[in-house]
Design a protein around this nucleic acid. Structure first.
Length: 878
RNA sequence: GGGCGGGUAGCUCAGUUGGGAGAGCGUCGGCCUUACAAGCCGAAGGUCACAGGUUCAAUUCCUGUUCCGCCUACCA
């Protein structure tokens, strides 16, 4: 028996432990009897704490995996965490700093050990939190991107791509974070427009008098200028090309060159070129064979090439230089200007374009295969609109900088020979230089971009490069569920690397969900203080309510706005289910569910109706899940559970249960409610298990592994269900009159019903008990088409029926007349619209036949209603 | 600069082949009807951003305008 109040705290932990104990979440590699269904988790950062994004992402995955598990699949949800190189290193460095230590004090090896220790201690938190959410991952398989197996996969991939020429090492301008002391990929830079300035600076001619004025948003870079460039077609500067100007302050002679990249329209049409600190400038320097002068160091400090500014921070230098330029008369102008600023996505420091030697992946050939896979539909991106974004990015893809100058991560498996400068790339440390045989080897100190290893996730977690049974069974995976924000970072790279190394796409479907925002639609952030904490929500309302809320708001392609209030709303829903469970359990005594279905002759019209509705709900929910329309699935199930089953069927069942022949009602109550629990289980696993376990019946282990409900042909009673719909209309008609005329629910009424169709009338008569009970009616009287309208009555017109409630002595007649007037006006207007439409010959001729018929039917209904209202009005008056 | 998404009831949002505008919350009125007051019954509330076009018919398709959000970009 269920407690009076539902308390999630008691239940959730209990059932989760049971599920683990019975290994329900484990998928077997060797289960040949069932079709596999696989999802790999987007691995959260090992240092992470569960936030709303995780909660949404993992709830949706759990919904799918539980649905498929129940539906008979060998369902694997592969869990794990990501080593998150820069983020984790930052966290541990911060921790060391709190003790007054730095990673440099420790040295590389000791620092890495420190990170492992940190991970040992704190790395399990997010896993614990996922369990709290109810995630049904196959925990025995939990992987970490730095595990030995996954690290071997990384090495193998690196070596293989290198040997194929798809990985190379080169000098290039990269995005450098002066705080993280590392290069970043293009994706790891966040672009923003900020208020800045445009400085116009005078560069005097080296020979003769005159000057050229250049415009820049970063004056400090002029210290590293090695030329001034103009457009070759710019007549203003034709004579100047090939001559020299003097770089102010530094008093260096630099040439003026012509390059087609220069925009004549911008500024003065002359641009200063700083090859070491600007990508465009660097590429131009290659074309023109220019000098390259590095003036800023790895920490953003001006170096020895910056002359008097050596040792200054780059922004301090800007100020100092501006003053000097001003004092010396070189500064022509300084105007406000919106400037694009790149920032480190991890620490928000301003990125410095920086010339350095880095490792790159030549991604274009990989991207082409990944594009083709989506074009050919081997991988489907849902919602489809993201396909375009995917193509756009893939088509314009640039080489991927994969080396990071940090310590925590997969160290690049490359060795340099200090004797002959040979680079040896190998999975294992080479014993000697492969070329000169006698040089000393030192390993590359850089580590790989974290996304390089997570790009292998769908197969590295399954044991690749070994051809494991898991790999054979579960790759390719069925769906990847993740946020659109990592489409490029992660999804695209898994596509490229999966196709490359497995020869097959990593997933059939990619479902991209939206970001979770706060109530006002703002991105959640610590600084804004608008974080909604998943754990807090679960403490307050339970994991089920929280999960249902997330599922219900996961509409395709839309932001998910979460608010405490909404979660509370779904907490009420959980409570509703709980109470329905109490009702059902209290009323099915004597029922032996194992004796099978009753024959249909024993079923009441209400029974047939709810079974038919159940079938529709099952079909709707299944289709919605299959198409990742999570909010629709939630909506359909919510609607059916609360408003169809609880509001109507339970009420309809009460008179049946009170009667002599209550067995069919008991059986239906049990059957439908059990199905409701099973239908809802993927979304709200805990409460459904708790109640399900209380239901009678044998051979039950857990709702987790029971079959997901299917439509049953023998439950389809569409014709009878329609009559039940009519009964419901009658009841709501009476209730409506009651509500609008202010008749107290405690007052018993009589009802007169006019039905045109004699068959319907007789069936209504047979089922009058429902009307009596649910509308609180004493007598139901039927009249036929030829009978007089009853006098002094309120009227409700529904579906070709007139429902009269005699008002004599019950309510103010004047008021009822007013009400009828209002009603009449409304119906009249609608009727006019219909008539107008139907009198339009174009419509009648051109519209589809069934549409016209429908309109005619509606017109007739409205006419009937209007006529009824008019007569009722007259009789009320008389 | 390019691209994408959005503007529907007071609020948050659904609305998939174009054919009588929906839900939840909130509001108002009435109910402790023996599963549930975390509940039940009833009601009010919208020129579907604006302007054109296609069509017998447009919230839905097309064009333009405007406002908001996001992604992307090597114009100093």
């Amino acid at each position: 028996m269920l407690e009076k109040e539902y308390d999630p705290k008691d239940i959730e932990q209990k059932w989760y432990d049971v599920w683990l104990e019975h290994n329900y979440f484990h998928a077997r590699d060797d289960d040949g009897s069932r079709k596999p269904y696989t999802i790999v988790i987007p691995p959260p950062n090992v240092t992470g704490v569960l936030h709303m994004g995780h909660a949404l992402n993992n709830t949706l995955q759990d919904v799918m995996i539980r649905f498929k598990r129940m539906d008979g699949y060998n369902a694997l949800w592969m869990p794990g965490t990501d080593h998150a190189g820069i983020a984790t290193q930052n966290v541990v460095e911060k921790y060391l700093a709190s003790q007054g230590r730095s990673r440099h004090d420790l040295g590389r090896e000791a620092f890495i050990e420190e990170v492992w220790k940190w991970r040992e201690k704190h790395g399990g938190l997010i896993i614990t939190q996922l369990k709290r959410l109810g995630a049904s991952c196959d925990w025995d398989r939990t992987r970490f991107t730095m595990d030995e197996g996954l690290s071997n996969a990384v090495k193998k991939v690196f070596v293989s791509l290198y040997e194929e020429g798809l990985i190379f090492r080169s000098d290039y301008i990269v995005n450098w974070c002066p705080r993280c002391h590392s290069a970043l990929s293009d994706l790891e830079v966040e672009h923003e427009e900020e208020d800045g300035h445009l400085w116009h600076i005078r560069y005097p001619y080296a020979e003769g008098s005159g000057e050229v004025i250049v415009a820049t948003t970063r004056p400090e870079t002029m210290l590293g200028d090695t030329c001034v460039a103009v457009n070759p077609s710019d007549e203003r500067y034709t004579d100047l090309v090939g001559k020299s100007v003097i770089l102010p302050v530094m008093n260096r002679r630099i040439p003026v060159i012509a390059d087609f990249m220069v925009d004549k329209e911008f500024g003065t049409g002359a641009v200063k070129i700083t090859p070491a600190h600007d990508l465009n400038d660097y590429e131009m320097s290659i074309r023109h064979n220019l000098d390259v002068v590095v003036i800023i160091d790895e920490s953003g400090i001006m170096n020895e090439n910056a002359g008097p500014y050596q040792g200054m921070d780059r922004f301090d230098c800007r100020e100092a230089l501006e003053k000097d330029l001003q004092d010396q008369g070189y500064l022509v102008d300084k105007t406000p200007y919106r400037v694009p600023v790149g920032k480190c996505y991890r620490c928000k420091s301003v990125i410095e374009p920086y010339l350095s030697k880095q490792w790159f992946v030549k991604v274009r050939p990989l991207a082409e295969a990944a594009i083709k896979a989506v074009e050919e539909g081997r991988t489907r991106i849902v919602p489809k609109q993201w396909e375009k974004v995917y193509y756009e990015w893939m088509h314009n893809i640039r080489d991927w900088c994969i080396s990071r100058q940090i310590w925590w991560g997969h160290r690049i498996p490359a060795w340099y020979c200090d004797a002959c400068d040979e680079i040896i790339v190998s999975e294992n440390e080479p014993a000697a230089c492969t070329r000169c045989k006698n040089g000393t080897l030192r390993q590359e100190t850089d580590v790989l971009d974290t996304w390089f290893s997570s790009g292998l996730w769908p197969f590295s977690t399954m044991g690749w490069p070994d051809q494991t049974p898991a790999l054979k069974t579960f790759y390719p995976t069925d769906v990847l569920i993740t946020g659109f924000d990592i489409l490029f970072f992660w999804v695209a790279r898994m596509m490229m690397l999966g196709i490359k190394f497995m020869g097959e796409v990593p997933f059939r479907d990619v479902y991209l969900h939206a970001l979770v925002r706060d109530e006002q639609g703002q991105k959640m952030s610590k600084s804004k203080g608008n974080i909604v904490d998943p754990i807090t929500e679960m403490d307050k309302y339970g994991a089920d309510a929280f999960r249902f809320a997330l599922t219900a708001f996961a509409a395709m392609g839309r932001d998910v706005r979460i608010s405490d209030k909404r979660v509370q709303g779904y907490r009420f829903f959980i409570n509703k289910i709980w109470n329905a469970g109490r009702f059902v359990l209290a009323n099915i005594e004597g029922l032996d569910p194992d004796r099978g279905a009753l024959d249909s002759a024993a079923l009441s019209i209400a029974d047939k109706w709810i079974l038919t509705e159940l079938n529709r709900t099952i079909a709707g929910a299944r289709a919605a899940f299959e198409d990742y329309r999570f909010n629709e699935a939630a909506d359909i199930l919510y609607q059916f559970t609360w408003h169809t089953f609880c509001d109507w069927y339970i009420e309809l069942s009460k008179p049946m249960l009170a009667g002599e022949d209550s067995l069919s009602a008991k059986w239906v109550l049990y059957t439908v409610f059990k199905a409701i629990l099973e239908l809802l289980h993927p979304i709200i696993p805990f409460v459904t298990e708790e109640i399900w376990q209380c239901l009678p019946g044998q051979g039950k282990d857990s709702i987790v592994i029971t079959s997901y409900p299917r439509e049953r042909k023998e439950f389809d009673y569409s014709a009878d269900a329609e009559l039940m719909g009519t009964i419901i209309e009658v009841i709501s008609g009476v209730r409506s009159i009651r509500g609008e005329t202010g008749i107290s629910p405690s007052v018993q009424l009589d009802v007169v019903i006019r039905v045109a169709n004699p068959e319907v009338q007789s069936l209504l008569g047979l089922n009058r008990v429902y009307i009596k009970e649910l509308a609180r009616v004493r007598e139901v009287v039927f009249i036929t088409g030829t009978d007089q309208h009853p006098k002094r009555c309120a009227l409700a017109v529904r579906k070709g029926l007139e429902v009269y409630v005699p008002l004599e002595g019950v309510v103010d007649i004047e008021k009822e007349m007013e009400r009828l007037d209002k009603q009449k006006a409304k119906v009249h207007k609608e009727l006019e619209d219909k008539r107008k439409k139907l009198s339009n010959r174009n419509f009648v001729e051109k519209a589809k036949k069934d549409v016209v018929e429908e309109q005619m039917r509606l017109r007739d209904e409205l006419e009937f209603e209007l006529k009824s209202l008019q007569k009722a009005h007259e009789l009320l008056a008389g």
